[in-house]
Design a protein around this nucleic acid. Structure first.
Length: 290
DNA sequence: GAAAAGATTAAA
DNA sequence: TTAATCTTTTCC
């Protein structure tokens, strides 16, 4: 079969990435082994081949979307964060040679006791109250840069936290920024890891995601099934917001952060939340079941 | 001006 | 289970 020229080029570059990845991987592995011998080379090689298999199986889909390089327009973001959050699943984040596919998100909204906007407009949270489509980046625990996508119209404090992604391209750069040679979900599952992999700092806060250059948000395939559950790490919030099911994830991917046991298929979860008669008053899954 | 807390991560 | 690490926000 004949493929368009652009598609050929992409395949070629993909192959180049994989080849150089193999070399770089060997170098990285050698360097890492000299520093610490905690991980056995045998394990690494196995993991590498697993990733390559997965990468190949999904690359066609990625190429079809990335070939068009469709940057999502500003209008796409001018909606409630609760509606925007699941729409971001499957979309791509791109910076330079690094492309990540969004696999897990959380919605933060107006009148939400867990939202950074709860204290009003401040120097840090000003972007949250701006028009949708910009980044909101903040430092967490003095260590981690967290990437959010600002939602809704100007004046409304709402955003969507990017919690996890799957690698699409630029694996070497991702591994270098993360400081690890892994290609398993530990590489990108967790909000702090996304900021690190994209190499962004708080200076990127308020950066527009709908203009070419810098950090971009591109259209991507809509996931077939999604999971929903309560948000992570917000125990300080009011009970209604702690239990709100505003966390969303792609159902059939390993690229999801912990805890995973609080996520349920969306249909079942919605049904449960609408049935107070069931014993879910205290918030199920709060304590680790696994 | 001081103090507490945090949308977390990696290692023990 | 716990240390790391520093900005933001609040309180006196």
């Amino acid at each position: 079969m004949k493929r368009p020229q652009r598609f050929k080029r992409l395949l070629k570059s993909d192959k180049t990435i994989e080849t150089s990845e193999s070399n770089e991987y060997h170098k990285a592995r050698t360097a890492l082994s000299s520093k610490s011998s905690t991980i056995k080379p045998k394990t690494k090689v196995k993991a590498q081949s697993q990733f390559r298999t997965q990468f190949d199986s999904i690359s066609i889909t990625h190429h079809l979307f990335l070939e068009e390089s469709t940057i999502l327009p500003p209008d796409f973001f001018q909606i409630d964060a609760l509606d925007l959050a699941p729409l971001l699943l499957g979309k791509y984040l791109r910076r330079d040679d690094v492309v990540l596919q969004i696999t897990e998100v959380e919605a933060y909204r107006p009148n939400d006791s867990a939202c950074h906007g709860r204290f009003g407009v401040t120097a840090r949270t000003a972007p949250v109250f701006g028009p949708g489509g910009h980044a909101y980046v903040y430092l967490c625990y003095g260590l981690h840069t967290m990437l959010n996508v600002v939602a809704d119209k100007e004046g409304i404090g709402a955003a969507v936290l990017i919690r996890s992604c799957a690698p699409v391209s630029g694996l070497e750069t991702i591994q270098q920024r993360r400081g690890m040679a892994s290609e398993k979900p530990v590489l990108l599952s967790g909000p702090g890891k996304i900021g690190q992999a994209l190499g962004i700092s708080t200076e990127w806060s308020n950066h527009p995601l709908f203009t070419p250059g810098g950090l971009e948000l591109l259209d991507g395939p809509k996931p077939e099934k999604i999971l929903i559950g309560p948000r992570v790490g917000i125990e300080y919030a009011s009970p209604e917001h702690v239990s709100a099911l505003w966390r969303f994830a792609i159902a059939d991917t390993p690229w999801i952060s912990a805890p995973k046991n609080t996520l349920r298929p969306s249909e079942a979860s919605i049904t449960d939340s609408e049935k107070p008669s069931m014993e879910d008053k205290g918030g199920e899954g709060k304590k680790g079941v696994d």
